[in-house]
Design a protein around this nucleic acid. Sequence first.
DNA 1: TGTTTTGTTATTGTCCTACAAGTTTGTTAG
DNA 2: CTAACAAACTTGTAGGACAATAACAAAACA
Lengths: 210, 210
Amino acid sequence: MIVSEILRGLYDGRYVPGQKLVESDLTKRFGVGRGTVREALQRLEAEGLTTASLHRGARIRSFTRDGVRDLLEITEAIAGLTGRLAAERSRSTEDLTELRGSIEELSRLIEAGETFASAQLRFSILHAIAALACNQELFRLMPRYDASVVRAQFRVVFDAKGARAELEQFRKVLDYILARDGDGAELTMRKFVRRTAVAIQHLPDEYFDH
Amino acid sequence: MIVSEILRGLYDGRYVPGQKLVESDLTKRFGVGRGTVREALQRLEAEGLTTASLHRGARIRSFTRDGVRDLLEITEAIAGLTGRLAAERSRSTEDLTELRGSIEELSRLIEAGETFASAQLRFSILHAIAALACNQELFRLMPRYDASVVRAQFRVVFDAKGARAELEQFRKVLDYILARDGDGAELTMRKFVRRTAVAIQHLPDEYFDH
DNA sequence: TGTTTTGTTATTGTCCTACAAGTTTGTTAG
DNA sequence: CTAACAAACTTGTAGGACAATAACAAAACA
């Protein structure tokens, strides 16, 4: 699939924010028709990974300082809602124990330096929390790939230290969910995003698009 | 544009939730190629107006009871954020006076029974509030058309009485924005959505998809 | 030299046709 | 009435053609 391949390429640096995606290149690269490529590009745009303008084609998104602030403001609100709903609505105890298991595995992966695997597991943990929230619409919003662009563009922020801090937040959220404390879960999820937002805003200008 | 035409058709009942959208019909109806139709359908799906499944094509979305609850939970969070940011960040006084003018005009349109015009103005008021929030990402989320489906499917809820209640909420939000009261603006915007959600949940089963 | 104009090229937007893959509908036999 | 089968329809995908536009390079001019 073109979309997942570009995502993967974004992770390991083959694609970088701002890069142009030319249709004819992609048809050759993936051996598919132009229609298929165009559909993939549209999907990428809908999910926030690229921006397109008329007769100019698609580029991988590149955030300005304000742009990433705006995105993370919304992400914070959505993450908070997810935490709250998970705490207030989760019923399945087996999902919760599975979540605890995933968190501990993430801890191992981080310490082992398995960055790609831990990024994937991190995503699946967020997905699991969204599942606890029993809200299907969250799944329509969650796989938005703009988060992947943020991680690619501000890679320095997502180091092992940040990962450990995130891990701690995951543990706290899980406790709040178990305690059915909606306020606590919301606040923790929000802090989890805001910590990232603050770290990014502290970066110097050269990390941002202009 | 196909998208806007279908939106319009959804408003005045030519398209109804659950209805199938066949590519060949649309090519004839709009006199465009199949590729163009497919792109339009994809855009509609990305924006939540239709759902598509493999080899079965696209249908206009039809909400279950839980589905619309889920959607409005998220809408409430986003609307709350919009209100908060508008109160905390708005600087331009001319935008504010223009907003006040739009609200008064909406009042006139509602009393005159101009339902389509008032629906459009209502949308542009929400847009104006989002503009006050100074967050470009909100504009990427706002034009999601799933709200149009909700209005089409649960039409009875959006009557003149509801419109007047909304109007009152708009006035309150504007006051909170002028007072730079983020908490008040957030709460009012949230109530504004929740009122709709509650009204919809009170409808009998036959209004919902199963 | 620097700037404006013009022409070339590359890319996208849209259309068309064709065929394979899959779903839905209709028919017939049991 | 049900199940199996066949036909018709719809979608998914490939590939080609053409016009519209943008990006770039070259030429003309001040």
